[in-house]
């Protein structure tokens, strides 16, 4: 799941040429904008079947935090 999540996020941040880690702050990437944010919500919905609430999303910064939020949503 972690692998799939990181692979999909590479597309969103348009960094296909290198690997992402859970420590990466997605908000630091130049490609992170409102459209990338929409793509991320959509990708998470498509791949994992959950929608992260916008108020919660705003507080998340690293890919690890986001993945944890997805997992907790999937289990609830």
């Amino acid at each position: 799941m972690e692998q799939k999540f990181l692979e999909n996020f590479k597309e969103i941040l348009e960094v296909e040429d290198r690997d992402l880690t859970l420590e990466d702050n997605f908000r630091d990437y130049p490609e992170w904008d409102s459209l990338a944010n929409l793509s991320a919500i959509a990708m998470i919905d498509d791949e994992f079947g959950v929608v992260i609430d916008n108020n919660e999303f705003k507080k998340l910064n690293t890919l690890g935090e986001l993945l944890a939020a997805i997992k907790s949503r999937m289990n609830s």
Partner: peptide, 12 residues
């Protein structure tokens, strides 16, 4: 429009 919020609403 709070784009993310409305987007989330539209797909849930």
């Amino acid at each position: 429009m709070k784009g993310m919020e409305v987007f989330g609403f539209s797909i849930t």
